[in-house]
């Protein structure tokens, strides 16, 4: 099975230039058709649309993108509802602007960023990642975002910082799901600092080239593609560097079922269901789940010496 390379990275500029290229190609093709219609022999050879100029690091896409409509309408966002297909409607009027993210804790330069600061000062890239939910379904999503490392480098974690803790907004006026008091709101997540600094880890502000929709975690969310989806925390208001391992939402609820690492691993089943396979949204046949969601080459080294069976 061919993997999507983690480094399937396209810079925003290239992403746009690709689009320009497509446009141009379209015009050329249209022109060619016109010329052909006029019976002219000298038809300029239209570039084949199959071989788009790609980043050298980019492998040809072997797995199809999940349709945008599915990405927008199949969401786990319990602050709104536990019903995946109702999140989009309930999040419709969510106010994701103005928005600030407080970056604090064990850093030399604590700072509160406005969402526009991120867009101004960090390079927005496109990253096509698999998203594997702990519920055994998956998608392939073209995210737009920037590396978490680039943000962390700016705030400079101190030598005591070992972990990063993230927190989601919890606003009962906007989020009807918060009435369920069985959950330990606000949603929080955590990463080890080296996981956070890994090049695969991004903060996303968009997908499919559009600004992030509310139901997908607007205006800014984490994407950690080798971990189960619940690690990729949405609508972040706080990023805190800590010395101690922070707790996370699902581990707080069911420590016997969800851990801190939540690394995708087909060999380690959820206590109640199998993780060996997944249903890719838009496909009928089940796929076999890949170790670290197919990103072992990039991140397996982070877990050397640790028992992968315990990194659930």
């Amino acid at each position: 099975m061919i993997k999507i390379k983690s480094s399937e990275i396209t810079s925003k500029a290239e992403y746009l230039s690709r689009r320009d290229f497509l446009k141009t190609a379209g015009i050329v093709t249209a022109g060619a058709a016109l010329l052909a219609a006029c019976g002219t022999d000298e038809v300029p050879a239209a570039p084949p649309t199959q071989s788009l100029p790609t980043d050298q690091k980019t492998a040809p896409l072997s797995e199809e993108l999940t349709p945008e409509d599915s990405v927008l309408n199949y969401n786990n966002y319990y602050e709104f509802t536990t019903d995946k297909e109702r999140v989009a409607g309930l999040a419709k009027d969510f106010k994701s602007s103005p928005w600030t993210v407080e970056v604090s804790g064990l850093v030399n330069n604590p700072k509160t960023y406005g969402i526009e600061d991120f867009l101004g000062s960090f390079t927005i890239e496109e990253r096509i990642y698999r998203m594997r939910c702990v519920e055994a379904w998956s998608m392939v999503i073209p995210w737009n975002g920037f590396t978490l490392a680039s943000l962390l480098n700016e705030v400079e974690p101190t030598s005591d910082a070992k972990f990063v803790r993230f927190e989601t907004l919890a606003d009962p006026d906007q989020m009807p799901g918060l009435v369920n008091k069985l959950y330990p709101w606000p949603y929080q997540e955590g990463l080890r600092l080296d996981e956070a600094m890994n090049d695969l880890t991004i903060l996303s502000t968009g997908l499919y080239g559009e600004t992030l929709a509310n139901q997908n975690g607007a205006p800014i969310r984490l994407v950690v593609p080798w971990k189960y989806g619940f690690k990729s925390i949405k609508s972040i208001i706080k990023i805190e560097l800590t010395a101690e391992q922070p707790s996370n939402f699902w581990q707080d609820i069911a420590p016997n079922e969800y851990g801190f690492y939540a690394n995708v691993n087909p060999a380690v089943d959820h206590p109640r269901w199998s993780q060996a396979t997944e249903r890719r949204i838009g496909e009928l046949k089940r796929r076999e789940t890949l170790y670290l969601n197919g990103y072992a080459d990039e991140v397996a080294h982070l877990y050397e010496g640790l028992d992968p069976n315990k990194l659930y």
Binding site: R272, W273, S274, R279, K285, R286
Partner: peptide, 21 residues
């Protein structure tokens, strides 16, 4: 038939070893 497409090894893993199933 549809979800596991009669793949018995997968069905064994998904059905016979999981308490909910």
């Amino acid at each position: 038939g549809l979800d596991y497409a009669f793949k018995w090894n997968l069905i064994q893993d998904a059905l016979l070893e999981k308490r909910y199933a």
